Amino acid sequence: MRLEGKVAVITGAASGMGKAIAELYAKEGASVVVSDLNIEGAEAVASSIVTSGGKAIAIKTNVADENDIKAMIDKAVNEFGTLDILVNNAGIMDNMAPVGDVEDDRWDFIFEVNTKAVMRAIRTALPIFQAKGKGVIINTASTGGFSGAHAGAAYTASKHAVVGLTKNTGFMYAQQGIRCNAIAPGATMTNIASTMKNVNEFGASRTQVTQGVIPRVGQAEEIAQVALFLASDESSFVNGAVIVADAGWTAGF
C-alpha cells in the first residue's frame, strides 16, 4: 500500500473529491481525518472507511474559523500521533459575478474559505512537518486558477491566489523535506454548485463560451488518483507544481 502508516487530514471530505480522496487514502493504508462543516456527512464517510477495514475519524470544521483549523490538526496528532499529509480541499463557488458586480461581503467570504483557510492550515501544520523533516501538502486549486473564463471574479481570484501560495510554499520549504503541490480540476462531478446563490446572468453567460468545449466531465475518483500520486513517494521530485486534471479542456487555449 502506497500510504502505509501515514496520517492524512482532508478538508471538505464529506462529499465529492474530498470524500473520494479520503476513501482512497484509507484504502492505501493511511489513517484519515475526515474534516467537513457537514459533520453528519463526515461521520458517514469515516464510518464507511472503518467498516471497510480502514482507519478514520471525523471532525466538524469550519475552515473559515482559525480555531477550527487548529482543532483539526490537533485531532490528527492526538488520535494518530502525527501528521504526514494535509489536503486542503474545502472550497466554495462564487455566483459568477464579474468584478463590476462583486459585493464586498461575498468576495471576503470566498477568500476566507478558498484562500485564507488554505494558508492557515498550512501554517498550522508546518511546525509538525518541520520537526519531522518531511511532509506533504496538496491544495485543490482549479482550472479557474489560471483561466479567467471559468467562474466569477471572486472565485477566479481566490484560486489564482491558491496557485501562487502553492508555488511559494513549495519553493520556500523545499530544502526542509516539505512538498506542496496543487491539483487544478476541470469540470468534475461534485456538489460545489450547491454553494452558488443568486447567479449573475451576465457572468454565467460569458463562462458558457468555454464550457461548450469541455471534452467530458470528470469523476471525483479520477481527481483522487492524482491526489494519491502527489501524496505518495512516487512524486518525490514533484514540488511547487500545479497538476491539471481536465481531460484536455484547457490544453487548446
Rank of each mutant, 00 (worst) to 15 (best):
A58L: 08
A157D: 04
I214G: 05
Q211H: 14
G100Q: 13
N198F: 03
S205D: 06
D104E: 15
D36I: 03
E234V: 07
L126S: 07
K19L: 09
L165R: 04
V163W: 07
A14P: 09
T124Y: 13
N78P: 03
G53R: 04
T188C: 03
A193S: 14
A153H: 11
A125Q: 11
E79H: 11
I39R: 14
M196R: 10
M172N: 12
G16M: 02
A13P: 06
K6T: 12
A187H: 09
M72G: 08
S142T: 00
H160Q: 07
A151C: 06
D108C: 08
N191G: 11
V162N: 03
A220Y: 07
S235G: 12
V63P: 04
A46H: 11
T250A: 08
T115N: 00
N38Y: 10
G145D: 01
I49P: 04
L24I: 02
A161E: 06
N67P: 02
A149S: 15
E201K: 15
E79G: 07
T82V: 00
T82F: 00
I49K: 06
A13E: 08
R179P: 12
I128R: 11
V118S: 00
R216K: 15
V7S: 10
A157E: 05
C180Q: 03
F171K: 15
G18H: 01
E4I: 09
F111D: 01
K19V: 06
I59K: 09
Y25N: 05
S236A: 15
A182E: 02
A141W: 01
K197P: 03
N114K: 00
A90D: 03
N239W: 14
G240H: 10
G218Y: 02
D246L: 10
N200E: 05
C180I: 02
K55P: 06
G212E: 13
L37T: 04
Q175F: 13
L24W: 01
A187N: 13
V163C: 06
V50G: 10
K70T: 12
S35Y: 06
F80G: 07
W107R: 03
R216L: 13
V213C: 14
V242G: 09
A13T: 05
V238N: 14
C180L: 07
I85N: 02
P215T: 11
G18C: 02
Q208F: 04
V199K: 03
Y155E: 01
N198I: 02
